[in-house]
Design a protein around this nucleic acid. Sequence first.
DNA 1: ACCGTTGCCGAAACCGGTTTCGGAAGTCAC
DNA 2: GTGACTTCCGAAACCGGTTTCGGCAACGGT
Lengths: 377, 377
Amino acid sequence: MPVTTTGQKRLQRPPRVTIGQLADALGLAKGTVSRALNDYPDISESTRLRVKRAAQRMGYRPLSHAQAIRTGRTRSLGLVLQSDVHDGMRPFLAEFLSGLTQEASREGWTLTVSTAPSEAELAGVLRRLVEEHKADGFVLPRTMIEDPRVALLRALGVPFVLFGRTGDGRGCSWYDILGEEAMREAVLRLASFGHRRIAFVNGGNRYNYSVLREAGYRAGLREAGLAEAPELMRRDALTPQEGAAATRALLALPEPPTAIVFAVDMAALGAWPVAAELGLAIGRELSVIGYDGVPEGALARPSLTSFDVDTKRAGERLAHLLIRQIRGEEAEALRETERARLREGGSDGPPELTSSELARRLRALRQHVTRTDGRMT
Amino acid sequence: MPVTTTGQKRLQRPPRVTIGQLADALGLAKGTVSRALNDYPDISESTRLRVKRAAQRMGYRPLSHAQAIRTGRTRSLGLVLQSDVHDGMRPFLAEFLSGLTQEASREGWTLTVSTAPSEAELAGVLRRLVEEHKADGFVLPRTMIEDPRVALLRALGVPFVLFGRTGDGRGCSWYDILGEEAMREAVLRLASFGHRRIAFVNGGNRYNYSVLREAGYRAGLREAGLAEAPELMRRDALTPQEGAAATRALLALPEPPTAIVFAVDMAALGAWPVAAELGLAIGRELSVIGYDGVPEGALARPSLTSFDVDTKRAGERLAHLLIRQIRGEEAEALRETERARLREGGSDGPPELTSSELARRLRALRQHVTRTDGRMT
DNA sequence: ACCGTTGCCGAAACCGGTTTCGGAAGTCAC
DNA sequence: GTGACTTCCGAAACCGGTTTCGGCAACGGT
């Protein structure tokens, strides 16, 4: 008895049936039973059936960790979350997990979740899980342009799948939503409403999606025959506060935009308090389109026009792709993308003011008493 | 080679150092090394030190699943989430997981997460995890008054810890926030503002917290010297929609409440659209207090007065308690509770209207054109 | 000098599976 | 009827740890 564990209670779990007992009951060697259950070709069809039926009847289930010691496979997927990130992922975490685990358990796999307190510690946590072989492969959410996790797992030869794409995609498999298409569609929609000055507020600039979404915004402008204006592009807005700051800055321009496309819903929601403060009617005097489909967007008045992302499905597909990769399929052949679906809200529409009219309104407002808004609870 | 797995890639992980290699390097038997690392008393202090240093230097880490086959312990905690629940838990899932995993990994444990598509399947999913021994113990969130998960795990003799209390608490350990105290405090606060008719909108009535919070509301009324009124108590409001319906019903009473205490923030948020619709100023003409501290509450205008729950800490404590229980401590000795902390917002305050004045205002409004609000996107 | 402890470690069994190897029986061709 | 080839299964090794058991050496007491 180890000193540190004195007094441990004896676990008295329900008597599990082991492969040895199953073999005895059948009058077979346990190796034979194992091969029968794993569909080895050197077992006759009749005994295979007999074994499987008996296993079913006796309720035999192999212990995955007992198998792992020989096979090297735990039949579990790993997921490392970064706990200090407060962005769009979080509202969907439950659905994401649900997708991952449901698809995993369909195949008899499980999900091992861990968190890293900061980005710097992500690789360390990951490395520990790999060393202790807690998972056969990993799902990497929120991919960055240069992603240390990718570098690490690639170097270690551990299977992984990305939720999102990345700069150097060699040997990577992924599932992603085409955010660039959504941004393009958003610009074209606004242009068709008659908007001429359409701003873009990007998310975190180290994330891979930000390059793509910006490219989509640009493509949309080009197709709509609108010129790019550097002052209409801002970045690093992930929270309502940051979104509000970006909105304020854009509206302070000599030629303010009449519409703003946000790469991230949570930032887009920052436009509401600013509009209220300036007396602008969102959807008519200032159009806003977001991306993510967060539930808060539907609650806002007017509701936020956004692009729904089916996060549960993402989880399902990622689990599926990862399991296939672990089973030996080529990583680069396992790539899937999907389009986001526009969810029309009340936050965008034909502009009731031109940019210069808007500028005049805002200038007039600044002459007046600036309403101090003390309540920031 | 099994038929179904033909073509599997050979995993070529970095060469792990095994206990055998460590033993060879030290010129010791592997059993000796094992006992040294696990602090058996029959190993001399000097060799124990020598072994531990060498293990450190060579980067040896035991495979938990290799140990599990003999010890029966996986060193992993299990968590089964119910994926069809859209209640207050979800915004905090990330923090909850973060707390659980951080505390677990401090002790070298991991977290295995699974989801059940519905309440009915919860027990089945749990049973499967127990049978395959995917976890040494389980964390059960959202406890119900009669909880089938508790019955199952109790019968199987598997350690578990509750987030919340339950009807029959024999042999249970738990961590919980004293929601009843919060509700009591809410009522007393409103009473001290001068409110005389204080309503209560409860959450799901099968959850254990609902009995407690209702009891707290009643206790608050008693202490404030106010009479209970059955028509002022409603239940089963978990979403903004359900909260809105409850609010509407309460305000349609002959003697409407001037303040409403909600057991769940997400339901409380349903009061905002209703107030807007009826032209009532929340915080002055109708006071609202919630519970949970969801981020949406801080975003609402005026912001929702609520009780913050430190979900990350809950995760940490739960993991801690569960690990101790698995290590053999008595379950009933492992119980912790904590108070929720009031977060003052702008949604409550002294009533500017009495109940009868409020009733008159609302009656007058109903005479006018009822504003149709078609936009429910 | 002898015997009983005690401290410390090696050897081997063990956990519950998987995989390799070899051989017994059956089949087929000649 | 013999040899070669299959088919199918048993036996045993193996995976990486833990735990039991027994024995050697040193020590203490008389």
